[in-house]
Design a protein around this nucleic acid. Structure first.
Lengths: 363, 363
DNA sequence: GCATAATATGAAACCGCTTTCATGTCAAGG
DNA sequence: CCTTGACATGAAAGCGGTTTCATATTATGC
């Protein structure tokens, strides 16, 4: 291992002091153009790359962003992370990854992250409610951006989608296809997105003048098994009371529903139309392929990074501006979703209305 | 933001010097038990967590492992990363993630990583050949572990599977099912694993006394499109020359093959049996479901971390032992694979031999 | 042409921790 | 009782940067 080139070496070789080299590194304006040139050239020649660790330590801020994620095997995560990674790449920040594996308290991890003093900001990918500890830290000034889920009223700056509107569109799609009795398999109540999707469903029914039947709303956990359970529960209903269609609050549950439906002899979409939510990779491959709301995961990742960095820089200026008292509501970036029409809703086969629906999907 | 508790605070509160606190932190033996107790108690009370950045800087070694991965959307990656993350969690190391997005030279990234001086070791998840730069660095003493692919003769310590044997088993499975003309869609030649899988295929044919027909070996790229191309090429063969089965070198290509085959009116497995390689999540969901060799990605991740850390610690001791001259061949951890029997090979439907095959799959 | 301000640079302190070296203590050995 | 280590601890010098403050240089105004 060749000994690392340090700022001191550069200073000596360029005939300047460490301070000047540091100024060049940080693109301070008060360096003579000529000097800067010379220093830059020496750095180039020596292949000098400053130590992030040292810079972070000395400067009191670090160029590492902590990313807190659920396990990668959760299907929405890889695509989000791809966006995050790609956005980071264009900056001089790096990612420190904290993956919450099952069974471990998020608070523990959050503590671990921060106490290390390694990262100066945090990107949280967290379905479900935020831990109090996180909120506390954020209120103490830690720049945090949350991806997805919590929707307004946002406690923290966040990037996500409009769950209510998206659910509304999903349900409305079924209504337009002519289904009247439309069921809903909802996610757990502690997820705000689950509540919002439910509201969107209700709103669509209402606007279409369709009666709301509580018996058609099933409770799920966002996991595959609860989709299966829902299908099983559904077939116990008397034939006359069965729904003609169902809007399922995420694709994962929809997969369970589909597979159980098949086993129960329920044909999708002939006997029952299905629309999901998320559009994860598998959705295009299950049989029947799943009509669903596409969440722009990649874009969410990118936007979250950009928001976080802008926060980070903005904050650095805060002490100057001094908006100590005036508390503004945190930024939320809301990205558009899209209805992806596939087989499970019957639009392509049942009513031959695909032209109409295609144009709708491109709205 | 409350001011961070530093080692100095602890020292003062415990009535000792910074040096002693540091000793306690690093579990040095030469601290009186009583003193240690006291220091630990104060640390506990203060919620002290040492700064990784400072420790790394001062100690000249860091507690960050760099992880170099292909995009997360490559289907084998999330599962590997899950293993990596979980293994890391049990240590006091953290992950710095470098994701190589398409189009960017791995060498650039490797340089970026190292120059930063942030990480003291590197975990490389890289399908395909290693960059010379990486080999160079490793030979200069940087602890590097590579996941997958390169098989023996390994240039670097690595974790992977025995591709040849696994391919042999896949092919042998087809042979046992009674197929005689067995094709192979291979991966690109620059991937050693592609070559090895090809060899395993050849070996199985040979041992079974089946003739090898070069016309039945197709070239692929490991991507979906080349699976489709292969299917298209295959149907141009005169009926008499068509294979009865095909062993495809990875699942991604198998998916392409399956979908093209369906479009071409080729029934799988009735007209042609298919076995893939990898067992990525989608493999259980395509139609027909794919019989394939399961790679233990999660375990590979875990093992790689363990190997890397043991290397890291071992290396620290090297100067003492001083094996300067004697160059040993790098460690390779080879994990077992398993044949997962699903629909595409016909074992479950065609010959009703499933009992026999099940027991085989559990070997 | 000189006072004054603006700009460019260097010296040194410091970030939070590790490590070396020196010092102090105490038990064993002569 | 004094020497010799072994052991416990502290003081101080870094690690590779950033930042403050002082100083040197140059530009500006009158």
């Amino acid at each position: 291992m060749k000994p690392k080139v340090t700022i001191e070496d550069i200073a000596r070789l360029a005939g300047v002091s460490k301070a000047t080299v540091s100024r060049v590194l940080n693109e301070r304006s008060n360096v003579k153009a000529e000097t800067r040139e010379r220093v830059l050239r020496v750095m180039q020649e020596q292949g000098f790359v400053p130590s992030l660790a040292a810079a972070g330590l000395a400067g009191g801020r670090s160029r590492l962003v902590g990313v807190l994620t659920p396990p990668f095997t959760q299907p929405t995560v890889p695509e989000i992370l791809r966006g995050v990674a790609e956005a980071i790449e264009h900056t001089d920040y790096e990612i420190v990854l904290y993956s919450t594996n099952a069974g471990q308290s998020p608070t523990t991890i959050v503590n671990r992250i921060l106490a290390l003093g390694l990262t100066s900001c945090l990107l949280v990918i967290q379905p479900g409610p935020l831990t109090p500890r996180l909120l506390q830290l954020a209120s103490q000034g830690l720049p945090v951006v949350v991806i997805d889920d919590q929707g307004p009223p946002p406690e923290l700056p966040s990037v996500g989608i409009d769950n209510r509107v998206s659910a509304y569109q999903a349900t409305m799609h079924l209504i337009r296809l002519g289904y009247r009795r439309i069921a809903h398999l909802q996610g757990p109540a502690e997820f705000r997105c689950a509540q919002e999707r439910y509201q969107g469903y209700r709103q669509a029914l209402e606007e279409a003048g369709l009666p709301f039947d509580p018996a058609l709303v099933f409770n799920g956990t966002f996991e595959t098994a609860s989709g299966r359970a829902c299908a099983a529960a559904l077939v116990t209903l008397p034939l006359a009371e069965r729904p003609e269609a169902i809007f399922i609050a995420n694709d994962q549950m929809a997969f369970g529903f589909l597979s159980a439906a098949e086993a129960l002899g329920l044909r999708i979409p002939q006997d029952l139309a299905v629309v999901g939510f998320d559009d994860i990779p598998l959705s295009a491959h299950v049989r029947p392929t799943l009509t669903t709301i596409k969440q722009p995961f990649y874009e969410m990742g990118r936007n979250a990074v950009e928001l976080l960095l802008s926060l980070l820089h903005g904050q650095a200026m805060q002490p100057v501006a001094g908006t100590e008292g005036g508390y503004q509501s945190p930024i939320r970036i809301q990205l558009p979703t899209r209805l992806v029409i596939r087989e499970s809703c019957g639009a392509l086969t049942l009513h031959r209305r695909q032209e109409q629906e295609h144009s709708l999907s491109d709205e």
